[in-house]
Design a protein around this nucleic acid. Structure first.
Lengths: 331, 331
DNA sequence: TTGTATGCGTTATCAT
DNA sequence: ATGATAACGCATACAA
């Protein structure tokens, strides 16, 4: 009755093979048993189409080979790419990934609780909620945001990226540039892009202006800012660094609406390295985040046993890629 | 010793509250117990910061509130959107989502096995491997591909979408159109776009040509096809329907390289409804797939108890949206 | 209404 | 080397 309708268990296999339960367990886990026993068990496994129940395994071993990934969503191309590469990195180590999209930041805490309930082996989180309670017993790796010295944070070298953007604009002949930023005013790693850019401008003698908007402020503020810097149809900036490709994308559209040509009149550099489709070119000239490396680093740090070797902050090198909104090779 | 370093269990809560194990279980599961007992248990739960172990729960109940989603990747914007909305739909029902990116189609089977091992409550799969073995005991819902009458398939109304594309092109003044397709030659739902388009062309008296490439054939074939249809700098098509937005995106670039203006010289319609960033406009005029509705339908069908009520194929209505590669309002 | 005991599928520690 | 048995954390049927 039972073994007909429910999935086969080790007990069923043992009965089928005429051996003891422990023997089956050993075969399944690759522990040496007598040749003839092994064959009989393997045959029974195949015959019954037996699969180990990893929940029972997890219950016993207190290890689940599952990691939770917390992200705001997967529709933003950067998050989507991150999710994909973290999935790959986990897969390489035979870990499963629980994806948790945090529609609002209340859910972040809820998900962390959920993840702990589910007894995941660890959590990788790109979160915005400033006061998350992370249990000591659940390994956590943060992306783009430092959450205390006990929790490693992995990010791009955002400062160097900002600096690189300034240097590239200088190399490309700009003299008068602008930095545009919108987004969370949280003290996270990406906010170092601004400081890096300023630093780069100073060291290369670029004069620069900044326009910083907080989350929720209307985009029109940027339009106004740009309009105010147009005199006789000419923009007083010849280069713009936008804090993300997304912003760059919107700014480029706005510039064109203002009858300014990109990159002829003004060159634009973004940050992230977004492509519309995998394999397509970038949406703009940009500072590319090393997503596969970030993913690999997160997984490595998370699964690393030696807790004392966990660094508080890891910054990975970024690269510059031309994407048609700068004038490479034209000078 | 034990209760110090490991996470608290029901037993710990029971001891702390001075009640029996069963009582704690009842409180946790909302089964009525005496008021004073409940309070004591709740207090102990809070004090110890107790969380139920859902693996143990699952082991007992044979239910895990976890669903696996099989997708090729999350970098493709359509897949990314699907993953996000399925995650939301599952979350509404308090289900967790295991994301499984199938880098190559061998892994699809591996993942299905893994999912079954992990005792997920069901699988939602957008797969390409033509001979997948789906266990009878694991509920499965397929996206975009029929996998037999026992497995429900959810898709957009691809036929209607193709038809709609033809009708729109006709409405927009086209008389001579082309259909371009590349991708899996598998017998899946999206391949009905072609038939729908032909049908639409016929009913609206459009003359049309087709260029169909199989997976792996070089994109240059399209370039050649288009070049061959240019005479005196003019393309002999005034409208093109591409089987996906991705293809449309590439084709539009090619057309511009061939000194053809889009949409002035030739109008282009894609399929899927991709945006570069959430909230941004579409990358081209397109037939939009109702991703949130597809997600919701998949989850509904998967978690529906009444197995006899599961339809073999559900097609959801698509809509047309202008995205700047057609000439709305110009005629 | 509350407590006790058993079993879920697996692993590991024992004797054999 | 193999087989019996306890234990993982929880739910529940049953006894009190």
């Amino acid at each position: 009755m039972k073994s007909e309708h429910s999935v086969p268990t080790m007990k069923d296999v043992a009965r089928e093979a005429g051996v003891a339960l422990g023997t089956v367990s050993k075969v399944v886990n690759g522990i040496p048993v007598g040749e003839s026993y092994r064959l009989r068990v393997e045959e029974a496994i195949k015959k019954l189409n037996y699969q180990v129940n990893s929940y029972a395994q997890g219950l016993k071993a207190n290890k689940t080979y599952t990691v939770a990934l917390l992200l705001p969503n997967t529709e933003d191309p950067f998050f989507a790419s991150l999710a994909y590469h973290i999935n790959l990195s986990l897969l390489k180590r035979r870990y499963r990934m629980l994806l948790c999209c945090t529609v609002n930041s209340d859910q972040e805490q809820e998900y962390i609780t959920m993840a702990q309930q589910n007894k995941v082996d660890g959590i990788i989180g790109l979160t915005y909620n400033p006061n998350l309670q992370i249990e000591e017993n659940t390994p956590f790796v943060a992306i783009d945001r430092s959450m205390g010295s006990k929790i490693p944070c992995v990010a791009s070298d955002n400062f160097a990226g900002g600096q690189l953007a300034a240097e590239k604009l200088a190399d490309l002949g700009c003299t008068n540039v602008a930095f545009l930023r919108i987004g969370s005013s949280l003290d996270n790693e990406p906010n170092k892009r601004k400081a890096g850019f300023e630093n780069g401008c100073l060291s290369r003698g670029l004069s620069y202006k900044m326009k910083i908007l907080n989350d929720g402020e209307p985009f029109e503020e940027f339009t106004r800012f740009l309009s105010e810097h147009i005199h006789d149809g000419r923009l007083s900036f010849d280069g713009i660094f936008c804090v993300t490709d997304r912003l760059a994308y919107l700014i480029i559209k706005t510039l064109r609406q203002l009858n300014l040509r990109v990159p002829e009149d003004v060159q634009v550099i973004g940050f992230d390295g977004i492509r519309v489709f995998p394999g397509a070119e970038h949406v703009c000239s940009t500072i590319v985040q090393p997503v596969p490396e970030i993913a690999e680093m997160c997984v490595n740090l998370l699964l690393q046993e030696n807790i004392s070797a966990k660094p508080p902050l890891v910054c990975l090198p970024v690269t510059y890629v031309s994407g048609g909104t700068t004038r490479e090779g034209e000078i």
